[in-house]
């Protein structure tokens, strides 16, 4: 769907879950997407953000984003899954990121971290079925280490049936 689709347009598709996809660009300019994302969170719709989608969800949750000093580009970026404590190799291509401290006041917690510059590489909502990663778990090109992000999303979709009002 177009980047500026409204929540009503999304709901009209009768989705089991929603994926907010990648960029490029500065997430702040995507005002309409951020608004829609806020509604997705609010309405507990299973949502997966990837790359720009990760930043959009963070902004929707009240966090801030900024331009990184060195963008992350390549298929060899090491990220740590703070839940499993495993370090995985991911495919990345982003110049913007979530400001770590700004997450403190939100309902999101950090899921993945880049082990070289400690920037946020993924977030998880503490209550809602909303997850997001800054890297590309679909990995084309790139390693398949984080395909399990999709399994996690699939679980969320299964366990959170959307009740259409």
């Amino acid at each position: 769907m177009p980047w500026n689709s409204s929540i009503d347009q999304v709901i009209a598709q009768n989705p089991a879950g929603v994926v907010l996809s990648n960029g490029p660009g500065d997430p702040i300019v995507c005002k309409e997407t951020i608004e829609t994302a806020s509604e997705l969170i609010e309405r507990s719709i299973p949502t997966l953000g990837i790359c720009l989608g990760n930043q959009i969800l963070a902004l929707a949750g009240g966090a801030k984003t900024h331009k990184l000093k060195f963008g992350h580009r390549g298929q060899n970026k090491s990220c740590r899954d703070l839940v499993s404590e495993h370090t995985l190799i991911t495919s990345q291509n982003h110049g913007y990121g979530i400001e770590t401290e700004s997450l403190d006041k939100t309902d999101f917690e950090i899921w993945f971290k880049n082990i070289d510059d400690q920037t946020v590489e993924g977030i998880k909502h503490m209550e809602k079925p909303v997850i997001a990663v800054q890297f590309h778990p679909e990995a084309s090109p790139g390693p398949d280490d984080c395909l399990y992000v999709f399994d996690k999303f699939k679980d969320l979709v299964k366990t959170h049936k959307i009740v259409t009002p």
């Binding site: 390549g74 090491s78 370090t87 190799i89 070289d116 390693p143």
Partner: peptide
């Protein structure tokens, strides 16, 4: 991840060289 890349001295040794 506890080990440091001996060339950069700041990044982690848990990585895939480019």
């Amino acid at each position: 991840p506890e080990l440091v890349n001996t060339i950069t001295k700041v990044t982690s040794a848990c990585f895939e060289p480019a």
